[in-house]
Design a binder for these strands. Structure first.
Lengths: 206, 206
DNA sequence: ATTACGCTGTGATTTCTGTCACATTGTAAA
DNA sequence: TTTACAATGTGACAGAAATCACAGCGTAAT
């Protein structure tokens, strides 16, 4: 597939610049793109697959922020890139993924030269900011049952699948909860006829 | 006081543009600068005082995101401004405040024309993003006692005072908790000799 | 088929937090 | 001073969620 189709708004000069300077890399499911505390050398544009962005703390806890799909970019890497800061988040490929890596040094120049890049960056900021705001809403105002429903809904939206093919343990990790709690809440959802439970798979009803 | 001293990095042309087009407004403590769901007509630069940015939900819950002090700007209003979106947050003056309001229509032009404005906006994004990340860390990974300590610490950092001059109820609101819980945790902190409690005032011991 | 292991179900218990009820105290207004 | 009210202290209880313990069940490897 041609990556340009994912970014039809990009102007010709920008496309040339990216083609000349950016590197396309493949990641296997589970590969780490970016680690907490690491220096950021490039901004990542996702072309294929799915990349999970999450926060990590010292005690080994995790917390899912959001997913990046084809056509999306990591706002954190843009912001950090512009100031050669270290990363505050983890980025891991959830599926086998293709990612376009744009070296930091180009960012500033591209922002000035290419209006469509500038707009893309601004748009990315806004979208990620919004996602984080809804994440904050969820943990600040909602109980685990509602957070779980939100999580499942977001998962199917993001993947396009109609079932969530992961284990209860993984969900617990993403929500910084525990496996038993998630299992019990899922059972309750099944009783309310919202989901059907299978091994490694949660089917959303309707 | 001259507002330009707060933004020594701004170039001459930018200062002229702001002086010609922006409006300086005064807000009393408690005044609402921006309301959830409202259309954003301008970007706010805080010159004096302190503005509280928080999230609100339907059931009347609140949740403090961060404060803006002199020289700081609201990232949300910038992002929204650039796309004439509605606000997702509440902004309220905590103290009597002076704020420079820059009409949205100018934002795009200023971003292109003035390099120092562009850098200021990027810097603002990064700072607010970082603040939200540490907020997420706190609610995702920490119990209320640690969140309270973080809250008090941030308060004294932001105000420059060495004591927190607000009621337990207000703290509870900011943390989306309840007054009794905060009172009890503060008592425990007092027993650990971290604070001294007074009426409407919490003195930090160090 | 047998084994091993990861996934899921479920009870019991504990901790943290929110809620209700009510007492006490400090401060400002009458 | 007396009154009124807001702020704080505290016990009792309820509910959400974490933790521990262990049983049953699928599936993949042998």
């Amino acid at each position: 597939m041609n990556w340009k189709e994912l970014f039809p708004q990009f102007e010709a000069g920008l496309i040339n610049a990216i083609e000349k300077e950016a590197v396309q890399r493949s990641f296997n499911a589970g590969d780490v793109l970016m680690r907490t505390g690491q220096y950021i050398k490039s901004t990542a544009l996702v072309l294929e697959g799915r990349v999970k962005i999450y926060r990590e703390n010292q005690e080994g806890g995790e917390f899912l922020m959001y997913y990046l799909g084809p056509g999306q970019a990591c706002a954190v890497s843009m912001i950090c890139a512009l100031q050669s800061h270290t990363s505050e988040i983890m980025a891991v490929a959830e599926e086998d993924s293709e990612v376009l890596m744009i070296p930091v040094q180009l960012m500033d120049d591209m922002m000035n030269k290419y209006k469509t890049w500038y707009q893309f960056v601004i748009q990315t900021y806004r979208n990620r900011f919004d996602e984080i705001l809804s994440v904050v809403d969820n943990i600040a105002f909602r109980n685990m049952d509602e957070r779980l429903e939100f999580y499942l809904k977001r998962y199917v939206e993001k993947t396009g699948k109609k079932s969530v093919e992961i284990s209860h343990q993984q969900i617990a990790d993403d929500l910084n909860s525990s496996r038993e709690v998630i299992s019990r809440l899922l059972k309750k959802m099944e009783q309310r006829n919202l989901v059907k439970l299978h091994r490694n798979m949660i089917e959303l009803v309707q």
